[in-house]
């Protein structure tokens, strides 16, 4: 980019960005606003932007959905899958980054390849496996399958973070009498905290937003909020307004977290390439 852009060029650039921003955010704004619209304003013909705000839709959400249960399911599934993935993925990423064997890079690519598998290819046999061992319809089944893609992601992501740490750090600690596990846990791990936060954020997002696995592996009493979102549309009494209100609990929390932790979110997207 040129060093000193003219004021008009700068203005044009910003105006263009503002317009683009408006286009990308308008659908979200609509989703939020529709939650506060009474049904007759949503179905106005012709459609209008003005409405009398109401909280009826939120009342309906509580009437039609066991919201606490849905959020509980989503939280258990996404936190469970994230904890499992980090617990086994981060040490593996470290091992691959520190191994001197030529197998290590091959294994790292193996984990990367696992992430490119279309979900349906694992879902069908996994569905039958879960049926056979009686886990179909449980949170456990969804956690297990969510954690495969997430583990592969965490391994690759943490591999890329640990690789940037000089080996000398742990080697110095070892000379000072630190044990091998100590070198990993107390020396290397604290230095890649941003990587851990970014991994966790994207794992939570992936599991929270997942629809395909959850919709086929859970039952009515164990389904997460992402699955309820679609049934919200299918039910007759329920309008777009209820969907908008429900999205306040399903979609907006993730949006808010990603905005708050934007730095980590960007790191996760660019380095882990989820």
């Amino acid at each position: 980019m040129s060093r000193e852009p003219s004021a008009s060029a700068l203005l044009a650039e910003r105006a263009a960005l503002a317009v683009i921003l408006a286009v990308f955010l308008a659908p979200i704004a609509w989703l939020i606003s529709t939650a506060y619209k009474p049904a007759r304003d949503i179905f106005n013909i012709p459609p209008t932007l003005s409405f009398t705000p109401t909280l009826t839709n939120f009342v309906n959400v509580f009437r039609y959905f066991d919201l606490a249960r849905l959020i509980e399911s989503s939280l258990i599934i996404s936190l469970g899958a994230t904890a499992l993935s980090l617990l086994i993925g981060a040490p593996a990423g470290y091992a691959l980054a520190r191994a001197r064997s030529k197998w290590a890079i091959g294994l790292a690519y193996f984990f990367l390849a696992v992430r490119t598998v279309p979900p349906v290819a694992t879902l069908l046999p996994f569905y039958l496996m879960m049926r056979d061992i009686g886990l179909l319809g449980t949170w456990g089944a969804v956690i297990l399958i969510d954690a495969t893609l997430n583990t592969a992601f965490v391994v690759w992501m943490m591999f890329s973070y640990f690789r940037t740490l000089p080996r000398e750090l742990e080697e110095a600690a070892l000379v000072d009498g630190c044990s091998l596990p100590g070198g990993f846990l107390r020396v290397a791990l604290p230095l890649v905290k941003p990587g851990l936060v970014a991994s966790a954020l994207l794992c939570v997002m992936f599991a929270w937003n997942d629809f395909l696995y959850s919709s086929f592996l859970t039952r009515a009493e164990s389904k997460p909020i992402s699955v309820a979102l679609l049934t919200a549309y299918g039910t007759k009494d329920i309008s777009w307004g209820t969907l908008g209100a429900l999205a306040h609990f399903s979609t907006l929390p993730i949006v808010a977290i990603a905005l708050l932790l934007n730095r980590y979110f960007v790191q996760g997207l660019t380095r882990g390439t989820h």
Binding site: I20, L31, W208, F211, S226, L229, A258, F265, L269
Partner: peptide, 12 residues
């Protein structure tokens, strides 16, 4: 702000 769409539940 532009990254918001990336975070929205695809079903939504």
């Amino acid at each position: 702000l532009l990254l918001i769409p990336v975070t929205v539940t695809p079903i939504a």
